[in-house]
Nucleic acid binder design. Sequence first.
DNA 1: TTTGGATATATTGTCGACAATATTCACAGG
DNA 2: CCTGTGAATATTGTCGACAATATATCCAAA
Lengths: 219, 219
Amino acid sequence: MLAEQAITTADKTFIALRGDVVSGAIAAGEKLNEAELSAKYKVSRAIIRESINRLEAANLAERRANVGARVVTLSPEGLIQLYQVRESLEGMAARLAAKNMKNDEIEQLRSLLSSHAHQIMAKESYYQEAGDVDFHYRVVLGSHNQHLISMLTNNIYHLVRMYRVQLGMAGPRVSTAFAEHQHIVQAISNRDEELAEMLMRRHVTYSMNNIKSKLRNMQ
Amino acid sequence: MLAEQAITTADKTFIALRGDVVSGAIAAGEKLNEAELSAKYKVSRAIIRESINRLEAANLAERRANVGARVVTLSPEGLIQLYQVRESLEGMAARLAAKNMKNDEIEQLRSLLSSHAHQIMAKESYYQEAGDVDFHYRVVLGSHNQHLISMLTNNIYHLVRMYRVQLGMAGPRVSTAFAEHQHIVQAISNRDEELAEMLMRRHVTYSMNNIKSKLRNMQ
DNA sequence: TTTGGATATATTGTCGACAATATTCACAGG
DNA sequence: CCTGTGAATATTGTCGACAATATATCCAAA
């Protein structure tokens, strides 16, 4: 995972606030009172305002003029729409990765997968979600497309994580997902753009269907 | 086109600043000095800072901590990457439009196209780019996917427009693009998601190739 | 002349106060 | 008891000032 280096206190505050939102420490739908947060994080209101603006840009909060901001409310419909965008963008990322990744990048991706294989066999299951994140992140970087990278890492992924954390579903369907990862890497390695995109899109779709069925079982 | 209703002065300032950046009144690569802009737009630096932050979120400016922000620099490579994202997102939008648009929405889209046909026959060529924007915008709205709509209208389209305006290429390849629009609407009307996505992706790709060839001819 | 460092300047980052708007509460009239 | 109106309160929007950082300038030493 990328180590975001926070330079200014505004950066640090934003990252802290985003963490609290994603983890649910600040609940979905909750009001973001500027004075309150200012006291909580021990920074001025200006910093809090900037952080809230960035939350809004990341689709994690919604602000109404002269009224205030709230953490976004999670819904099954929102999850579906999010995964539709993710399918589209990550599909393109896989296509571009097949086109643009250097051979040594692909080699690193392979070794990442094999280390995951060992972890799975050793039943170190707590590493699974991190592994999944790592894999997708590596492919997205492999696209060498700055817009794609920025959209996925700064927006989509945090929102995806907020859904997963708050709906209480960690690291699902490990073994099948792992096989899908292998097929994707194979397509990238073969420079088969068409197949890489198709496999990634299906992989994302399967993942969404898995979450949807879990949602149904919870009710 | 959506009438963005600016409530606060920060909103108005952001929209004005964004307009100046997209139109080239503030040149690509130019430094965004906060004090200067504060005087120019007659608002406090806080407002300017917020506007610059929003420009950055819209990928129209880049900020470095303690150094300042600059308007993004346009490059052929950047244009290509932008259109790759656009292809991906608008393709998905067309697919979802085929799935989700109401019958009366489709009817409105049809009548929009026929009015364009009349304008083209009447050689009202200055309406062409606006027409193209209208069409794409309508399809994106038809996806009924808030994330897609937000990403395209708040980010991608302004950047696309900046490229077009600053590279001096207005409303290209009208007649062929119009035929492509018709085919897309037909696919949406037939509820053929697969075809709608494919046609839109090709349409965007053709459009990019057209721009690229113009770029080559200019040098 | 060039280079290195210290000082001066310019620019961004952060803060607290005031203004404008929205919300809440009390009270009067029906 | 309900409803509407106006005052009181809370919250967001905007501003100018000060602090921290980066950049430019100048001078001295090689």
